[in-house]
């Protein structure tokens, strides 16, 4: 049971390539993605134009996160890196 619970809470880190142009885009992403289900941490990198999302595997997945980005106009985002 305990092992199952632990597995359920497993976190995954995924880095999307997001065409961030300015601080207000970062603000927009922070506001939108923070409230997507399962999102545990967020790091926007304006210099490298990436957003790293840490999420709970049992609550969301990359497709759902992509849908979240799409709501604020960032569609079909490429994945830069995934860390389990």
């Amino acid at each position: 049971m305990a092992a199952k619970e632990k597995k359920a809470q497993e976190k995954v880190k995924v880095t999307f390539e997001v065409p961030l142009d300015c601080m207000s885009c970062v603000e927009k992403v922070n506001k939108q993605m923070a409230f997507e289900k399962g999102v545990k941490d967020l790091k926007c990198d304006l210099a490298n134009k990436t957003v790293t999302v840490t999420y709970r595997k049992d609550q969301t997945d990359i497709e759902k996160l992509r849908e979240g980005f799409a709501k604020i106009g960032y569609k079909n985002l490429k994945i830069h890196e995934t860390t389990m």
């Binding site: 142009d21 300015c22 601080m23 304006l46 210099a47 134009k49």
Partner: peptide
């Protein structure tokens, strides 16, 4: 500090 610089028509840039 932190100004965005990128090539027109591309997403290639830096700050």
């Amino acid at each position: 500090v932190g100004a965005t610089v990128y090539w027109e028509g591309t997403s290639q840039g830096c700050v």
